[in-house]
């Protein structure tokens, strides 16, 4: 019997295991497996609770208080003041609007470009090497990407500024200091970093488009466009859905490059809600109000999380069965 396990390569453990049973036969399957698995689970769950549930309780406490950071002062009960102040806070409302505008811009450009890249790359001769090259921006820290683009956009020595000037799009002034251009400049940075991810997800999806469907369609006389829109694209929907949800999530998880490039300016044109939250909490140190803003952001996260878990279960199968109904 032990030979079986020796095949897998841990003979010694197996032998020891057999001996243990000889000595304590009553201990075999002594406990129901659930408790054993519970013990395995417990350290991670406890740690996660300590660093996520406990802070959540604190967050809720903070939303109801005026938090004092100075030593010796204790927090003042504020009731729902922190929330009611948000209702009249124009920057808060604008933060949400800007967040959605920013995400919509990022997502539409990224999805468009990403799908295009994936379709062209699919079964291309250079697919492997090009995918590897396109991966590189994703590995970069968003802060570094922010600095790099800040350098490129610079009004006196930036190459992108020069390029925009040369093709006549821009006359003078600065890109990041302009209310209109700053948003696009930041979107471009995000697009540069994350379009490859969308392309990779789409590429994985394209590999799963049933060849038979494509061929049958071609036999019926469909051209390349028709083929893409009626066969490939419907098969891609679940993948694109995942891509959109993940990227939307990351759009407000990471604000590093906005903090670096504009800090939310000029005139709050790029101050998406998380950036505003950062200012309120860690520049003005109004932690109670910050907590209230954070709370509203977390609510959105939970909604997105619900959407994701539904999609995650098994996206392809789910959408397929829905179509067959």
């Amino acid at each position: 019997m032990a030979a079986n396990i020796a095949d897998i390569g841990v003979a010694s453990e197996a032998v020891r295991g057999v001996r243990t049973i000889d000595h304590h036969p009553e201990s075999f399957n002594h406990r129901p497996p659930r408790y054993y698995l519970l013990w395995l689970m417990l350290p991670a769950i406890l740690l996660l609770a300590a660093i996520s549930l406990y802070p959540l309780v604190w967050l809720i406490y903070m939303t109801l208080h005026e938090v004092q950071l100075a030593p010796g002062k204790s927090d003042v009960w504020a009731g729902i003041d922190n929330f009611s102040r948000l209702a009249s806070d124009k920057k808060f409302a604008r933060g949400w609007l800007t967040l959605f505008k920013y995400s919509a811009l990022c997502l539409s450009v990224e999805i468009g470009l990403g799908v295009l890249v994936a379709v062209i790359l699919n079964n291309n001769r250079f697919e492997k090497i090009l995918v590897t090259i396109f991966l590189m921006p994703m590995m970069m820290a968003p802060v570094i990407a922010g600095f790099l683009y800040m350098f490129l956009y610079n009004g006196t020595f930036g190459w992108y500024f020069w390029l925009l000037q040369s093709i006549g799009l821009l006359e003078s002034g600065s890109i990041l200091g302009n209310k209109f251009w700053a948003m696009f400049a930041i979107v471009a940075t995000d697009v540069w970093q994350w379009t490859p991810l969308i392309a990779l997800i789409t590429l994985a999806g394209l590999k799963r488009v049933p060849q038979e469907q494509l061929e049958a369609h071609m036999v019926d006389g469909a051209g390349p466009f028709r083929n893409f829109f009626s066969v490939a694209l419907p098969n891609l929907y679940p993948f694109l859905l995942i891509a959109i949800l993940l990227r939307f999530m990351d759009n407000f998880r990471f604000i590093d490059h906005i903090l670096i490039m504009t800090g939310g300016g000029p005139a709050n044109a790029t101050k998406i809600l998380p950036t505003y939250l950062f200012d309120v909490s860690f520049k003005f140190f109004e932690l109670g109000r910050g907590a209230a803003i954070a709370f509203t952001l977390l609510l959105l996260t939970i909604l997105l999380g619900l959407a994701l878990t539904i999609v995650f279960e098994d996206p392809t199968r789910k959408l397929r069965t829905e179509r067959e109904d």
Partner: peptide, 26 residues
Amino acid sequence: KRDLLFWIISTRMAPVVAVMVPLYVI
């Protein structure tokens, strides 16, 4: 189990800034 898994994934997705507010105080 589903609720536990949901809790785990939503912890991962929470915006870093929002998590940081209480974490900083603690």
